[in-house]
């Protein structure tokens, strides 16, 4: 689904990301962990063609994401507030995202109903603009808008941080259900080792831009990761 070849990114003479080869197959749930500055967001931005790679390519369904816009048809993503249109109400934002992805009005409405638990009555029908909502609620909007279109690839940067505990559990459950039901390929970065090992079947550890571990999740993975980061 996603194939990375010789990917490097350099900022001010310093290599912040260097991935010689990496393949993510369809339906895989890919968790990315690493300390601040490890290159997680940089990697996601490169996949989404938001920054230019110094060398190498990201292939999405065998097409370089930098040379075609085709990947936009089947990729949903939420990295940060830069993905929200803050002067819209949440309803208008969902409407907008739905319409540009050619969803029918009915699908958009159904989505909003099905997410009403997740939103916990704090988002819909409040007549507030997104910029006037709390950080946690903004994040909920971004994540759910990315999921709304049922994309084949879902990219989320630290989806669990700044969410309340209940929503964290709901989100985990939702992501796991989506994996089973739709074979969605997921790329999720997180600082919370608990959550990410629970949701992802494969964990990759980045350190200063290099992949230092690439593990299939088992019952020992969490302990291994905790041991690794404790030494760091």
């Amino acid at each position: 689904m996603i194939k990375v070849e010789n990917l490097t990114k350099v900022y001010g003479g310093e290599t912040v990301l260097n991935i010689p080869a990496l393949t993510i197959t369809k339906g895989e749930s890919f968790g990315l962990v690493g300390n601040n500055g490890a290159g997680k967001t940089t990697f996601f931005r490169l996949i989404l063609d938001l920054i230019r790679a110094n060398s190498g390519t990201v292939l999405s369904k065998d097409i370089a994401s930098a040379s075609s816009e085709h990947w936009k048809d089947y990729t949903g993503s939420y990295l940060d507030e830069g993905f929200l249109i803050d002067y819209l109400t949440p309803e208008e934002y969902f409407q907008f995202v739905g319409k540009i992805n050619q969803l029918a009005q009915q699908e958009i409405d159904e989505f909003m109903i099905s997410f009403s638990d997740f939103f916990n009555n704090e988002i819909l029908g409040k007549k507030k603009y997104i910029r006037d909502l709390s950080k946690g609620n903004q994040k909920k909007i971004g994540i759910s808008a990315a999921i709304m279109t049922k994309p084949e690839i879902l990219i989320l940067d630290e989806p669990f941080s700044s969410l309340d505990p209940t929503t964290q559990f709901r989100l985990k459950k939702l992501l796991k259900e989506l994996q089973v039901e739709t074979q969605m390929t997921m790329l999720i970065s997180s600082h919370d080792l608990n959550h990410v090992t629970e949701v992802c079947k494969r964990i990759v550890v980045l350190h200063n831009g290099d992949i230092v571990h690439d593990l299939a999740t088992s019952k020992d993975t969490l302990a291994d990761l905790e041991a690794y980061f404790a030494v760091q």
């Binding site: 989404l48 936009k72 830069g82 803050d86």
Partner: peptide, 12 residues
């Protein structure tokens, strides 16, 4: 402020 959204979402 939301230019990353414009670039990465399904807007040609």
């Amino acid at each position: 402020t939301h230019f990353d959204f414009i670039l990465s979402s399904n807007i040609g």
